[in-house]
Design a protein around this nucleic acid. Structure first.
Length: 560
RNA sequence: UGUCCCGUGGUGUAAUUGGCAACACGUCUGACUCUGGAUCAGAAGAGUCCAGGUUCGAACCCUGGCGGGACAACCA
């Protein structure tokens, strides 16, 4: 255990493990697993589960397996398996070759099922799915038993065998556990163990035409792998008695299931179904669209794995429902990139300025690459009489608290000189198209020749040297905190139409020409940006805004 | 109308197992600053859902309410 892990807050799962360690319940072992279904991309909620399971294993000197719960061949695909593995690795966790699949256990599971049939606690039911649903009853009222419930063991064995051999059509029969149709826990009302699906499985191919239900496969898979602590989300709490029942009937290793509350973030949705909908309806540009809460999207947007892990560890783990504010995530990435990202200047909405008293020449100025990290060094940036500045950094009629450029006012150009705005040039329509400024040669950064102070410093890029690129600004995908919270409206009604703003012909300092896909920078005063890995081409770089800088001015301005 | 789970500042979690509630984000001041960034200093904000009970002492234990969530796929 290193210092870092030690400083993580305690939680009820660790308490449970500590107890088990104390009593010697699992002979001092801690074996966990991360069990995704390969039917979609991982999102940040999964990152919490990954960090928890792998983190626990790391902290207790145990192991954490990766197991794909691939019991439904019609929904699962290799593409998802691949993306899940990539995401886990990217987050910095390692299953050390223990890559398992529920489908690895299909034979064993079949054997277990036979055992239950022989014990007389499982039977083949020939009701239709509609009838089964009807017979199951309601949460508040008991169900009733199927007329097929009392078939003999031999009959069940024969039928189940034929199910396996493909002698029936989909849906003709199912294998069910014989528990209690009147149980107040719906999961105990004779749950379905196997259904017939003549479908091709991504791993077992056409070997099987009966597939185990998740409830039947999951607990036994954990047991087979010798999992000590099966950590899952709250919705499986009601299933635990069923899993316990299976394990007891089978008399096999009994993991402890511990449920925790899944992560929720405001201004987004976190269900795979809804994310899939966003993708399929092309509301976003794929699973890795930088506005998505998927891990691949965060990666593409420019989040670091460290920031995501630090975030999910920071929010803690408990059993109560929660909604974490997106600002906590943004804090995590800013904190990380503040230390790591090279500073650079880029103008997103350019406004031309001409420094009328500056000679017709170019000088190269020193710029610090990262004030937080001296070892990142310095660089030279070209400066001349024609520059681009940010349109927002000029106000013709300045707000009282605005201390940037305005007519007759002075401002410092970062790493360069103090300039004064002398003249505003407009077109026929009254649009500001250029500023004429003068500079004070004694105010060069670092020269110490003048002790003149100005209230503002703005960024700029030399016009003849500017490197043009596209910049994509992202905002939250939804404009309400809880898009799924309205009973009368669909979550898609809350899509934020301004969630993506594409800026073309932005002016960047020339050194950015060498930026490679995935590189991250801080554009001074604006935010952190990452070279897009999908749309960047040799002649057309695209930058994604990871997150803005904390913006006190925006706060002041929005108060008006 | 059933079963299970959960109620601690605005948000998310703690509270060394019964000793007068801490941390983080956010918010608000101020300092510093060639990023309105970062950093630093400080402040406000909960008396722990409610009511009883046990106890010298309760966020922690008990009882009863109230509120929220989960469960009725041949999905996971």
């Amino acid at each position: 255990m290193n210092q870092n892990e030690k400083s993580l807050p305690s939680n009820f799962i660790k308490d449970r493990i500590d107890d088990d360690l104390k009593t010697g319940k699992y002979a001092g072992k801690v074996i966990t697993r991360f069990p995704p279904e390969p039917n979609g991309y991982l999102h940040i909620g999964h990152a919490k589960s990954i960090a928890l399971n792998f983190g626990l294993a790391r902290e207790y000197n145990g192991k954490c397996n990766l197991r794909f719960d691939d019991t439904n061949p019609t929904k699962e695909e290799q593409e998802y398996v691949d993306s899940i593995k990539e995401d886990i690795k990217w987050l910095g966790f390692d299953w050390e070759g223990r890559e398992y699949y529920a489908s690895d256990y299909f034979d064993k599971l079949y054997e277990y099922a036979i055992k239950l049939v022989k014990k007389g606690v499982a039977y083949v039911d020939s009701l239709s799915s509609e009838e089964i649903k009807e017979y199951r009853g309601m949460p508040t009222s008991p169900g009733k038993e199927s007329p097929y419930r009392n078939r003999t063991v031999d009959e069940n064995l024969e039928l189940f065998e034929k199910m396996k051999n493909g002698e029936f059509e989909d849906g003709e029969h199912v294998l069910r556990a014989k528990i209690d149709m009147t149980s107040p826990n719906m999961n105990l009302r004779d749950p379905v163990l196997y259904r017939i699906k003549h479908a091709h499985h991504h791993r077992t191919g056409d070997k099987w035409c009966i597939y185990p239900m998740y409830d039947w496969a999951h607990g036994q898979s954990d047991s087979i792998e010798g999992i000590t602590h099966s950590i899952c989300t709250l919705e499986f709490e009601n299933h635990r008695p069923l899993y316990d029942w299976f394990i007891d009937q089978l008399e096999i290793h009994h993991p402890s299931q511990i449920e925790f509350a899944r992560l929720n973030l405001n201004y987004t949705v976190m269900s795979k179904r809804k994310l899939l909908q966003l993708v399929e309806q092309k509301i976003v540009d794929g699973w890795d669209d930088p506005r998505m809460p998927t891990i691949s999207a965060f990666r593409r947007r420019g989040y670091t794995p460290e920031s995501i892990v630090s975030f999910v560890e920071g929010v803690g783990v408990a059993k109560r429902d929660n909604v974490v504010d997106i600002s906590v995530l943004e804090y995590a990435i800013r904190q990380d990139l503040n230390k790591k990202a090279m500073r650079v200047m880029a103008v997103i909405n350019p406004l031309k300025i001409v420094i009328t008293n500056y000679p017709d020449e170019i000088e190269y100025l020193d710029a610090v690459n990262n004030p937080e990290d001296e070892s990142m060094g310095k660089r030279k940036i070209p400066f001349g009489k024609e520059l681009w500045i940010e349109r927002e950094d000029f106000q013709e009629v300045p707000h009282k608290k605005f201390h940037r450029l305005s007519p007759g006012n002075e401002v410092r150009l970062r790493y360069a000189y103090i300039i004064k705005c002398e003249e505003v040039i407009k077109d026929e329509l009254g649009n500001i198209i250029e500023l004429r400024c003068s500079y004070d040669p004694d105010t060069k950064s670092g020269s110490g020749k003048s002790d003149k102070k100005v209230k503002g410093t703005i960024h700029w890029v030399s016009a003849p040297h500017a490197f043009e690129a596209e910049i994509r600004l992202y905002d939250r995908l939804f404009n309400v905190e809880n898009p799924s919270g309205d009973k009368d409206k669909d979550f898609l009604d809350f899509i934020n139409p301004q969630s993506l703003e594409i800026k073309t012909k932005c002016k960047l300092e020339p050194g950015l020409k060498d930026a490679k896909p995935g590189d991250r920078f801080q554009f001074e005063r604006q935010g952190y940006f990452c070279v897009d890995t999908k749309y960047t081409t040799l002649d057309k770089p695209v930058f994604n805004r990871v997150v803005t800088l904390r913006d006190t001015w925006a706060k002041i301005a929005s108060r008006q």
